[in-house]
Design a protein around this nucleic acid. Sequence first.
DNA 1: GATGAATGAGCCTTCATTCAT
DNA 2: CATGAATGAAGGCTCATTCAT
Lengths: 217, 217, 217, 217
Amino acid sequence: MPASPKATKKEIVTAFRTREILAAARKLLEQRGPEAMTMGEIAAAAGVAKGTLYLYFQSKDDLIQALIAQVGENILHDVEVSLVAPGTPPEKLIRMVSVLLEYLNRDRLLFPIYARELLQGEGASREGFRRRYQELEEKFVTLVTRLFADGIAAGQFISANPRLLTFLIRGLVRATGYYQKAEGQADAAKEALPVILTLISSGLIREKQSLAEEAAL
Amino acid sequence: MPASPKATKKEIVTAFRTREILAAARKLLEQRGPEAMTMGEIAAAAGVAKGTLYLYFQSKDDLIQALIAQVGENILHDVEVSLVAPGTPPEKLIRMVSVLLEYLNRDRLLFPIYARELLQGEGASREGFRRRYQELEEKFVTLVTRLFADGIAAGQFISANPRLLTFLIRGLVRATGYYQKAEGQADAAKEALPVILTLISSGLIREKQSLAEEAAL
Amino acid sequence: MPASPKATKKEIVTAFRTREILAAARKLLEQRGPEAMTMGEIAAAAGVAKGTLYLYFQSKDDLIQALIAQVGENILHDVEVSLVAPGTPPEKLIRMVSVLLEYLNRDRLLFPIYARELLQGEGASREGFRRRYQELEEKFVTLVTRLFADGIAAGQFISANPRLLTFLIRGLVRATGYYQKAEGQADAAKEALPVILTLISSGLIREKQSLAEEAAL
Amino acid sequence: MPASPKATKKEIVTAFRTREILAAARKLLEQRGPEAMTMGEIAAAAGVAKGTLYLYFQSKDDLIQALIAQVGENILHDVEVSLVAPGTPPEKLIRMVSVLLEYLNRDRLLFPIYARELLQGEGASREGFRRRYQELEEKFVTLVTRLFADGIAAGQFISANPRLLTFLIRGLVRATGYYQKAEGQADAAKEALPVILTLISSGLIREKQSLAEEAAL
DNA sequence: GATGAATGAGCCTTCATTCAT
DNA sequence: CATGAATGAAGGCTCATTCAT
């Protein structure tokens, strides 16, 4: 029957359009920020009419949510994979950091560092955007916190609040993203990976003895 | 003491109003973000009429810049103090991290983690806000980069791009800010400081031997 | 005739709307002046929403400039035609005055007497309006000044600064416009034309001898 | 009794302030127009506080009315004097034109050509300004129209609507004002006076014969 | 009387969203 | 389905006017 393939073709076109629009929106989101970016700009960049955007997304906020979901689910999936693969917690941690850093180079993707939304209270506009971003964040934190909890329990990580450790690790990845952006480098991740691994494994400071005194303070 | 206090009284009122407005704006900035926050809201929160804001600031952008300047100059000053005081580079680094973390508890202060502006291109609105924030950032990075460069030259830090190290350290402080906000804790800094110091001095991972293998990968 | 009229239909609608808006704006400009006239009033008078005006004109100033350009180019063109047609300078002068006076009756047109902008310095608002108006003025003055210069050289006009004569002729036309407006007459131009022609050709005063004495004073 | 001189002194100060404010306002009115000119600017130019203006004038509109009245009464008075002095109507006309032209050089005074207000309908803002200006105009027109009526009755002027003639004469004076402004000359009036007198007495065109044919059309 | 900080109505302009074609 | 002209709510900003000092 021709109906099913026809419907499928339609779905393919729809999916294609959706991706095109999201791709255009992503670039604009990074360049101009969520508020400054207008629906008109997105439409122009995607090569469609303004009204067409509303055939694919209910609102601007909805579009931004889809953007985050699209990216976020990919990241979360890859992070999850890196954590369920066999290995000790430290091994898993290292794999996960590598995965996160790779995202900084894929698709010019800056979402891992799109952190400002986390700061905003309930009154903020783009309510949906914020909420979605925080959900994503929460899922990530939950996953990684478990890793740290396991590792701490096994005596393989320093003894600290595993949730705090999760935030700190994420902070290092974000910092790399800002570094990449600020320095205009194409591949900051490659440079940062070994440095972050060294930091994680043995710290920044070479003369441990003097530090021991400091820590005593 | 007639004339002088009279002139001063007006100045006091002006200074007081300015601070009131900035305080109201700061709260709103955190709650709603720079775009969503309207001059009307700021005025209402400060208990003045909309037009009054324009007696103290030339524009919305100007007001936000003042907000940043107010905070930023304090931070920069304290950071600078912590760096010129005597001590080895590692000692200075630790002092500086302490200073930065203290700011997370002072004045509900979230600016140290107000990083999104760094991501945006020239087209973004509130040009002045972004520029000012980036200037602040640049000054900070320059200061700390020098510290790392010195420490690396003296063999006291690991050998890495000092600028990258600066971004990473800052990332840890920011992460603490997000942690504090996300967890709703009053004093995340106190909890995070020893963890960050340990991380800096000896890493997160206890079993160094296994890590050596990882690094070989 | 399928594609072409379709594209044309949209253009026709656009052109129609543009004219509607300009017509509404013209009436308001005369009633209230360029500053007092608001975009809201224009929109209401044109039967569209305020935002719609910005689909046709970039700004209020732009709209007013379009208004002037629309009218001004017509006038200039007709004046030019009246000056290049064959005839002696006096004949041309008379033709031109007739053309100008005709404009006072066409389209409730008062622009030929919209002179205030000429008085204002650079600080005035609606910079574009003023500039455009002065450009128009300058073109007109240049054209007519040449006519007077030619006529004076040929001994057909009294010997005087041709530029001054241009201003005086224009002053008579403007005066007729004010007369029409003030008296509420429909066709002041018809009444004024022979009077102005007589004035130009032989003056207002009948007893030339007495005047000669006066001039001697 | 000291009360009376004291009151007088106060009146003197008041009158002085009033004149100072009006002088400052007049300059601004010419530079920026009645709408663009702000009360703040007037106050600054007059060297007083903004609130002080409201001790001398009820409103901005009231201030502008006073401005017109001040100037207008002077002009009207001088025109009246020139018309009641002995002489034939043509003599009086010439005297009056001289008086009007003199005003163009006095006090940088441009009011005689401040004609735009005449165009505006009832809806315009600065209602009082417009009304006052039109009253002034009406008085002037009444005065001069009587002169022309007398002269026409005596056969000394061409036979035409005396009111129209009044507008035309006034148009010549205004034109001189625009000429002075446009050309940036200091003393356009001196140059224009003989030209206008010649125009009034015998027209612009020298070859009367050819004109006679034209007039026949 | 004089001041000028404060007010708030009202303006121009933008932009997410709708809907007739 | 796609379009883009139209909408109108809302924002930043100005400025005439008021009033406590």
